[in-house]
C-alpha cells in the first residue's frame, strides 16, 4: 500500500485568530515595558519576537530547500 501523500493546511477559527493576536500583542507591549536584565543585543526590546519569527520562517524555508534538493523516495537505498 502506498501511503497517502497530501498537503496539510490549517484554517484558523475567528476565536483562535483573536486569542493569538491578543496574546502576541500583550507580549510585545510587556516586552517594551519591563526592565531588561540583559544589555546589548539580548537586551533589545522586541528582539525575541524578531528572532522567533525569523527563525521560524528561515527554518521552514531552509527545510523546504533541503527537501527540494535531497528528498528521495523511501525505498532509495533498498
Amino acid at each position: 500500500m502506498t501511503p497517502p501523500s497530501e498537503t496539510r493546511r490549517f484554517e484558523p477559527t475567528r476565536i483562535q485568530l483573536i486569542v493569538t493576536g491578543v496574546v502576541l500583542a500583550a507580549l510585545i507591549i510587556a516586552d517594551f515595558s519591563v526592565t531588561h536584565g540583559h544589555t546589548g543585543l539580548a537586551g533589545q526590546p522586541g528582539i525575541h519576537a524578531l528572532i522567533g519569527l525569523g527563525a521560524g520562517f528561515a527554518s521552514i524555508v531552509v527545510a523546504k530547500l533541503v527537501k527540494a534538493l535531497l528528498k528521495r523516495p523511501d525505498t532509495y537505498y533498498d
Binding site: 516586552d31 519576537a49 532509495y76
Partner: peptide, 30 residues
C-alpha cells in the same frame, strides 16, 4: 516573558506557513 515571546512568534511562523503555503506530507527520506 521574553522566552514566551521567542517561542510564540516562532509558533506564529509555523501556523502562518501552514495557513498560506500548506505542508506537504509524503513518505520519503532525505
Amino acid at each position: 516573558l521574553l522566552q514566551f515571546e521567542l517561542l510564540f512568534f516562532a509558533g506564529l511562523a509555523f501556523f502562518v506557513w501552514l495557513r498560506f503555503a500548506g505542508w506537504p506530507l509524503g513518505r520519503n527520506l532525505t
